[in-house]
Amino acid sequence: MGRAASIVAGLAALALCVLAMIWSAMPPMAGPARAVVAPLADAAHRVVAWYRSGPADGHPDWDAAAREVFGGDAGIGADLIALHGCGACHAVPGITGANGSVGPSLEGFARRSYVAGILPNEPGGLTRWLVDPPAHAPDTAMPDLGLTEEEARHIAAFLYGQGGG
């Protein structure tokens, strides 16, 4: 390796160190990180969703339509799941640190037939369950977490986005 190349490599290493320091001092997923990573992740999710949807057969997706949660925002739902610490008991794909095994995994929740084996898995049933689990299953270990109905709708919207129908 020539001497000029060595110097350039050294300066590049120094520049990388400085960049890493600036990066480490920034809030997580702020600035360039969010601007670069978020659209890439979004695109990747679209590709995966398209792949999973299989060959088009011309029929509308009735399941997805039946599980649309009115007044529910999946993004807010994700924040609420992280805030309340649902991951202490449940594995929830897409939520950092949520890999609990006290209760069932919530992966692919949209495909499940019953909520807790008790209520039909449709928006009304899931929302009612989330607001007050012991009211529907007196012997359940899942406590009443004090969620409002609105919060429950957001969380339901997030869960129905799991597993792609």
Partner: peptide, 19 residues
């Protein structure tokens, strides 16, 4: 490690070794 509430407390008691 977790926000304090009844839900995380229940999860903690039931499965400390996982958390």
């Amino acid at each position: 490690m977790w926000r304090m509430n009844q839900g995380t407390l229940a999860g903690w008691i039931a499965d400390v070794q996982d958390m």
